[in-house]
């Protein structure tokens, strides 16, 4: 099998004003063709000289810098490469070509409530999810009450998570997530959470982030783009087609369909 190329992803801590530097970033996935998921097929494929996979290009040559303290929105259609970009920035996927430099402590929220287990109680899930964000038991103890109060679910602490409604689960996850203090936050579609009253609390939280924290937000809501972001980036077919004022980008995004 051909050796896969790898770009670089570095984490540094400097006083420069660039939080994220991305240059010539490429990423493609190997998609298995004709059921090469089994050992037998792989051996047959190799004997016959068939590759057994095809490369699917997802990001092709992205360049951008994000300044410290900037609130940047990333928009694009489904399948345009937004989530892949976010996951590559987070270090979940390796860049195939190009360079990523992250300056500061980066906390990704690709999904809320990662690791939540329906068979565990709310309390156990809080500690587990906290550990995935890097908090020790002691640190979690200190913010435990606050989390439940913010989620407004204090009376359900010792219930198993499978007995929570999906709205309750997301509220709990969101309440844990916002405790995580990092220099850079990556958020993927996590704004639409809970009922109207809870949404209001979340919005206040996002407003408080504005100006104090570097945030990259992937969303389909142009309302959120214009309301929270200083800058927006439009991605189409793995390339940046527009980078600048949120209002202009929001308009261009809506024009994609007309």
């Amino acid at each position: 099998m051909a050796k896969r190329k790898i770009g670089t992803r570095k984490e540094v801590f400097t006083n420069n004003d660039i939080a994220i530097h991305v240059a010539h970033l490429h990423k493609s996935f190997r998609l298995p063709t004709e059921r090469s998921m089994s050992l037998k097929q792989t051996i047959f494929n190799r004997l016959r000289g068939v590759k057994g996979f095809k490369d699917q290009k997802v990001l092709s040559g992205l360049d951008f810098d994000i300044k410290k303290g900037e609130f940047v929105g990333i928009v694009g259609r489904n399948g345009s490469g937004k989530s892949t970009l976010l996951k590559t920035l987070a270090g979940i996927y390796y860049p195939e070509k190009g360079e990523i430099v992250i300056d500061g402590n980066l906390i990704p929220f690709i999904e809320l409530g990662v690791g939540f287990n329906p068979e565990l109680t709310g309390r156990e899930n809080v500690y587990l999810n906290g550990a995935l964000l890097g908090f020790s038991r002691k640190e979690m103890d200190a913010m435990y009450q606050e989390i439940w109060q913010f989620a407004e679910l204090e009376q359900f602490q010792d219930q198993k998570l499978k007995n929570y409604s999906s709205g309750m689960q997301v509220r709990l996850a969101f309440s844990i997530a916002i405790r995580a203090k990092g220099d850079i936050l990556l958020l993927d579609e996590v704004l639409a959470v809970g009922d109207a009253a809870f949404q209001k609390k979340c919005e206040e939280y996002f407003k408080s982030l504005h100006g104090n924290q570097t945030v990259i937000l992937v969303t389909h809501s142009m309302e959120n783009i214009t309301r929270f972001c200083d800058r927006a980036i439009l991605i189409e077919n793995g390339k940046i087609t527009l980078d600048g004022d949120p209002k202009t980008v929001a308009k261009a995004y809506k024009n994609l369909w007309s």
């Binding site: 565990l120 550990a131 020790s136």
Partner: peptide, 14 residues
Amino acid sequence: RVLLAELTRTDFKL
């Protein structure tokens, strides 16, 4: 370390 301890605890409990 925190992650290792918490995942082990969860595995054992489950």
